[in-house]
Design a protein around this nucleic acid. Structure first.
Length: 289
DNA sequence: AAAAAATTCAACCGCTTATTT
DNA sequence: AAAATAAGCGGTTGAATTTTT
């Protein structure tokens, strides 16, 4: 490990590698403001940045793009990820298109850390509780909205569109359980017996939480959809979780806000161009936060 | 308190697909 | 039509951070 300190942040074939510095980001942002997205190989020529076009593109797309959402994946987003992964498998960019502000890389990472096959961690346990809680809330909401008609929850024969909802109806426990939040572990404890039954939890299995289970494929429909999609559903394992390291991570990095700030100050001072006047981004409806 | 283990995620790589010359 | 270049994708890596022992 020690010997690799020099490998990271190294220079190779004239290109710098490793983590980007604030200064590099600034150069790249300036370039994009002036020339738009694309032509990444000319970034080095024009700005003097010693990064390959590939590296520049990646940095922009995954980190510097102003329309990126920052912070934790929300439970709603997580549900979308679960559902779409069941449908598409590891087609991360396809999934990402349904999650504005999220990158394929981010989704891929999220999936890998939270749902990929492996030994269940305590985080996953917590996640499970959170996921179920969310689902129950969704169900309660939908029950409220469709009070009269949705009394019979078992009748989901034509469940092709609302896959998740139907299966939620099948799997979700009675709505009586109190949902006073914050204590995920408490919820887990309260619910554990039910959940284990409902989720077909196999204690000896290293990967007990297939998301077929989580999505309720015990009912059939979801599994059928996933299977008929023919995608990578075979590798799908799942549970859910919310990250809790986001803020800390951001705080520990040099702050992107600083760069944006600097740029805006530069703009205000009349140096270079301005975020708001950058046509390509405007055209794409990108917003700055 | 500190060492070890686990987790996270930015950035890399190789490959494929699309576009340009 | 073919070659070259650029963009995009998914898998993987490993430094930094967090959690556990």
């Amino acid at each position: 490990m020690e010997g690799q300190q020099f490998a990271w942040g190294r220079e190779e074939g004239g290109w710098r590698k490793g983590p980007w510095t604030a200064q590099e980001d600034k150069l790249l942002v300036e370039y994009v403001m002036q020339h738009g997205e694309g032509r990444w190989n000319s970034v080095a020529k024009i700005t003097g940045l010693k990064r390959s076009g590939k590296s520049c593109r990646l940095r922009w797309v995954n980190y510097l793009r102003p329309d990126l959402k920052r912070g934790k994946i929300t439970p709603q987003e997580e549900s979308v990820i679960l559902e779409l992964h069941a449908l598409w498998g590891n087609r991360w960019s396809t999934i990402a298109r349904s999650l504005p502000g999220r990158t394929d890389n981010e989704i891929k990472n999220y999936w890998r850390t939270h749902f990929k096959k492996g030994k269940p961690s305590k985080n996953i346990e917590r996640a499970r509780a959170r996921f179920l809680k969310q689902r129950r809330e969704m169900q309660q909401q939908s029950q409220l909205m469709q009070t009269g008609q949705q009394q019979q929850l078992g009748q989901d024969d034509d469940a092709t569109s609302a896959v998740v909802d139907d299966n939620l109806a099948e799997v979700a426990p009675p709505a009586a359980t109190s949902l006073t939040h914050d204590g995920e572990l408490q919820i887990m404890q309260e619910m554990a017996p039910d959940m284990d039954d409902l989720l077909y939890y196999h204690p000896g299995d290293m990967s007990p939480y297939s998301y077929d289970d989580l999505l309720g494929s015990g009912g059939g429909e979801c599994g059928a959809v996933a299977a008929s999609a023919g995608a990578a559903a075979s590798t799908s394992e799942g549970s859910s979780e919310e990250l809790d390291g986001g803020a800390a991570t951001w705080g520990s990095l040099w702050n992107l806000d600083d760069v944006v700030h600097d740029m805006m100050i530069d703009c205000a001072a009349g140096a270079g161009c301005c975020w708001g006047s950058f046509p390509p981004l405007q055209d794409q409806g990108l917003a700055f936060y």
